[in-house]
Structure formats: structure tokens, C-alpha cells
């Protein structure tokens, strides 16, 4: 994927993620509608590619207002990733040369890799994750399982032990996928499935759409820096 296409695809995917988020607030309180209706319109403009530099800048300013309104991210990590992508897109559009544009977009790709690797690292150094207890706790008493029936998974410690290790190992070896475009495509497919399962089990649908918005940056980064010739 070339640089221009990767940026364009990131804009389209992020615009779609922002539209889904914004629509959810349109039936909410009046002051939220005032924040999210403009965001919905700007996200549409981002998708069609209308004056993109101004649109990403306005989206960034609006995101700061939303951050202030909720005194932090509305949905934790997914909002933060959305802001990170938006910041990088702003820098790409404002950068004075292709060199600085690549640095801004490359930063997004590196952060995407770190989002998996560091998540794996903090788990493997924790004995409760290594024993499967942490994942059991998530199902047993955390606020995340979307239904009471899912809490039943806490009674299958053997399965949760293997799932914990599968997640930890996948997150830790993710950076090695950069050495092959095929491996990266497979790794991103598995990662998307991981986010999809988190969306199903824990209702984290916003993570799915925002994280895949950053994938084009990594596909470009791999071709740019890890593919010979």
C-alpha cells in the first residue's frame, strides 16, 4: 500500500468509526447533540475527502472539546486511539515535506505495534495473567461481560488459561510480523478477530472500528521500512 492510499484509507476508516460513535449520541442529552452532530458532519466530509486539512483540524479541536466535556475519554482506550490517529493525520496534512509526513504517519504505525506488544508485556509479567486467574476475574466480577451467562466462563479455568496464553503470546510476537508482508496481513487479521471477540463478549465495539482505522498505517510502514527494494 503506498503512502497516499494508506493515508486516504485511514481517513475513510476513521471517518466511519467517528460516524458510528457520533450517531450514538444524537438521541442523548442536548449538550451532547451539539457536540456530536458537527462531528458526524465533519466525519462525512472526511470520508468524501472534502478540504481534508481543515476537516481533520476541526475534528481535532472538536475532540478536545469533547474530552473536556466528559473530563476525559468517553470510552477509554478507543477514544484515545481515535485522538492519536486524528493527531497524526493533522500532522501529516500540516507537515512541510514528505519526510515529516512519513514521521507523523510512522509514529502512528509504531504506536499501533506498541499497543499490542506492551499489552502483552504487562500481562506476562503479572503472575495472575500467567495462571489464567486475571481473565477468570474479568469474566467473574469485572463490569465488562455483556450478559450474566458470559460470567459462566469463569467456571472454565482450563480454557481461560489457554486463552490467556494465546492472547499474551500473540501480543508479544506481533512486532515480528513486520518482517513479512504476509505475516503482517495474517497478524492484522488475527488482531481484528481479537477485537471482534472483545466487542462480542465485552461490548467494546468502538475499539474494533478505531483500531482497524490504524491498520493502513502499519501496512504502509512495513512496505516502506521492512521490504527490500
Amino acid at each position: 500500500m503506498n503512502f497516499v492510499d494508506a493515508i486516504r484509507l485511514t481517513e475513510i476508516l476513521l471517518g466511519f468509526a467517528f460516524i458510528l460513535q457520533s450517531i450514538e449520541h444524537l438521541k442523548s442529552f442536548t449538550n451532547e447533540r451539539y457536540l456530536f452532530l458537527p462531528r458526524l458532519l465533519l466525519a462525512l466530509l472526511l470520508i468524501i475527502g472534502f478540504h481534508t486539512t481543515w476537516v481533520v483540524l476541526l475534528l481535532f479541536l472538536l475532540s478536545l472539546t469533547i474530552l473536556y466535556h466528559f473530563q476525559g475519554p468517553y470510552n477509554g482506550g478507543s477514544d484515545r486511539m481515535g485522538l492519536l490517529i486524528l493527531c497524526c493525520l493533522c500532522l501529516v496534512h500540516l507537515a512541510p515535506s514528505v519526510y515529516w509526513q512519513e514521521i507523523a504517519f510512522g509514529y502512528l504505525a509504531i504506536q499501533l505495534v506498541l499497543s499490542y506488544f506492551i499489552s502483552g508485556w504487562v500481562k506476562i509479567v503479572n503472575p495472575e495473567w500467567r495462571s489464567g486467574q486475571a481473565l477468570k476475574d474479568v469474566f467473574q466480577f469485572s463490569a465488562y461481560p455483556v450478559s450474566e451467562s458470559l460470567r459462566g466462563w469463569a467456571k472454565s479455568p482450563q480454557i481461560l488459561f489457554y486463552v490467556s496464553w494465546a492472547v499474551i503470546l500473540f501480543e508479544l510476537i506481533f512486532p515480528f510480523a513486520l518482517f513479512s508482508s504476509t505475516a503482517l496481513a495474517i497478524a492484522l487479521g488475527i488482531a481484528a478477530l481479537f477485537h471482534f471477540s472483545n466487542a462480542c463478549f465485552f461490548g467494546l465495539n468502538r475499539f474494533f472500528w478505531v483500531w482497524i482505522s490504524a491498520y493502513p498505517a502499519l501496512l504502509w510502514f512495513q512496505l516502506r521500512f521492512f521490504t527490500p527494494g
Binding site: G77, D79, R80, S115, S119, V122, K123, N126
Partner: peptide
């Protein structure tokens, strides 16, 4: 958001 810690469920 700009310098994330990425410590999900640590």
C-alpha cells in the same frame, strides 16, 4: 492519547 501507555488490563 498522544503518548499512550497501552497498559490494558495489566
Amino acid at each position: 492519547a498522544i503518548v499512550p501507555s497501552w497498559r490494558f488490563f495489566d
